[in-house]
Write a protein that binds this DNA or RNA. Structure first.
Lengths: 341, 341
DNA sequence: CTGAAAGCGCTTACAG
DNA sequence: CTGAAAGCGCTTACAG
């Protein structure tokens, strides 16, 4: 099939007996150009459906107006809400967005960052892959272009980081359980302390200690890859204890849902015998029965905020590295799994 | 912060006392270049961490190696699995991918297509926004660059289309219900016959008629925006009928889950009194209780297939328009909502 | 086997 | 107010 070629400045210039420079300026509303000329040019451009070759101009000006995003997994609901925010705000501010997945693989993550750079993106948004050992490749990026991290971050990387108030959110969740009368609260967290898991765990510990409750290692469970299945397994372990917990705080919704499934199976009453709280407010949290009390993570806002900071750094380059951390507030959403009216 | 500049061909050439042409050829393994030279060049390039400016070469060669994707909504689980497939396969074949959302808005969709073209993508992957009235803007795209549609397609657009066997999948789902002894099967579909809804409806009709079952308008329900809430509402309507159905086929999982929630609420036994079947095999289908019988849509495969066809069209341009439709097979996943062991 | 030169489509400092 | 020209970093037909 024959593809129509795009009209170029040169063609417009020839047709109008003007120079390429003048046509370019006319289209860009340069003040030097007379209104007559400008109108003539714009009319013809309109007529021929002229679209500027962003590639040429981007190449010329060393700016591509593309942002690169690297996330561990594109199909987590929370991640999609962040991406939506990035897409929307990026677009508002005149940027296209390239999205890629690291599949939670450090090597893959480095590759993606490399390709993005090669491609000439103006800046990068990054949520770290799990178990990222070496941050060298990320530091290399920072040396060349602005980088903003979100959600899965690391203090080893000197850049702007947009996160939620992980510690406080966990604190509030656990405090809510305490307020409903629970005294023996278990936690299910990750083995290798990721940033998020670690902060949530700290919030848990602080809530217990500030309310004078003992910390019992037996009901502090860790798992490598936290998931629904693992949640179910951990619940089985907790049910087999001589002194069962009266509440379980899982640091992800999927684990919490696994917990509820296990409790349902053994006819343990939720929340009367054991209450459950998750983290993320995923779509499934209202599908499970009883519906899940959980922390709402405002993904859209996180995405928008991260983009704004990134574009600001792109458009107003600073001499020295920015290393501020922006915390986005979360809300606890109380549902039947912790408190029935 | 100071950003390091990328090394250019010219700089390498100067350092080695060679011409830019030779350096370029050496790096691209051009057969003309002597091995000695090639090695020298490659070593220096390596040392200085040379990365080619894809922008410049893409610009030069009129090829950007970027694909554009436009989908109605990035956060549907099914969509993310398709995107994963696109990302993976695209990457394998050496392409980057730009993703954008039309938000089910026709105007927005046109805008996104326009920007993608302006940006110089080599090809476009499109899932149509709901209620796309005019396909003019899409035809304009086809005139310039290859376009492949998937999932939400339209016969009005002459291009390669990758879909699932919608009609057959629905037929199989309904036949399964008939095989389990159900005789009065309701359907919940969309009011405005989208491609998908229409095909699934046809499969429903064919299953009933081929098994000699009557078609009853009273249990054929339509809704504008099919959703969990709407599924719940439709279930209420069906429960209020004098002659209740003994099975409900909802053309989306979310509606099916709404149906189950309503049935649970009214203590209707699922599947004994009323069986339920959905469509998509979304994550929530195993969270709801009883777990949902549903059609598994292989999103990853759809994405991969669509990319392959698109890249083939990019790299081997044909004289005349391709208009084939590729159907990807689906499987019915039988769970407790239709058949308990 | 290597180099000089043109050109991809655009922007912009310089000149008039 | 308008134009000629250089240049962004690369590739490639042409010459030697």
């Amino acid at each position: 099939m024959k593809k129509k070629q795009n009209v170029t400045l040169k063609e417009l210039a020839n047709a109008l007996n003007l120079s390429v420079s003048t046509v370019s300026r006319a289209l860009n509303d340069h003040p030097d150009i007379s209104e007559t000329t400008r109108n003539k040019v714009k009319q013809l451009a309109e007529k021929h459906n002229y679209v500027p070759n962003l590639f040429a101009s981007g190449f010329r000006s060393h700016r591509t107006h593309i942002l690169g995003v690297v996330v561990p997994n594109i199909s987590h609901y929370f991640t999609t809400t962040v991406l939506k925010g990035i897409l929307e705000e990026g677009e508002n501010l005149g940027y296209r967005v390239i999205i890629s997945e690291s599949k939670n693989d450090e090597k893959k993550q480095s590759e993606m960052l490399q390709t993005m750079m090669q491609f000439g993106v103006d800046g990068v948004l990054l949520a770290l892959s799990r178990k990222t050992k070496s941050v060298d490749d990320i530091l290399k990026v920072i040396n060349r272009i602005p980088l903003v991290m979100f959600d899965k971050v690391s203090s080893k990387i000197p850049c702007t980081q947009v996160v939620i108030n992980e510690e406080e959110a966990a604190y509030n969740a656990v405090e809510h359980l305490i307020n409903t009368g629970k005294r023996r609260i278990a936690i299910i967290k990750e083995t290798e302390g990721s940033f998020n898991s670690e902060k949530r765990y700290q919030g848990y510990l602080r809530a217990l200690s500030e309310h004078g409750l003992p910390i019992d290692e037996k009901i502090i469970l860790s798992t490598e890859d936290i998931s629904l299945t693992k949640g179910r397994m951990m619940a089985n372990i907790l049910l087999s204890l001589k002194k069962r917990p009266d509440a379980i705080f899982a640091i992800t919704d999927s684990a919490a849902i696994g917990v509820i499934k296990a409790l349902n199976k053994f006819k343990v009453k939720v929340p009367e015998e054991i209450a459950v709280v998750g983290f993320s407010n995923s779509a499934s949290s209202t599908i499970i029965n009883p519906s899940l009390t959980t922390v709402d993570q405002p993904g859209n806002k996180i995405g928008r905020t991260a983009v704004k900071y990134l574009i600001d750094e792109i458009e107003n380059p600073k001499e020295d590295a920015t290393t501020k951390t922006i915390e986005i507030k979360t809300n606890l959403i109380v549902r039947d799994s912790s408190f029935k009216v």
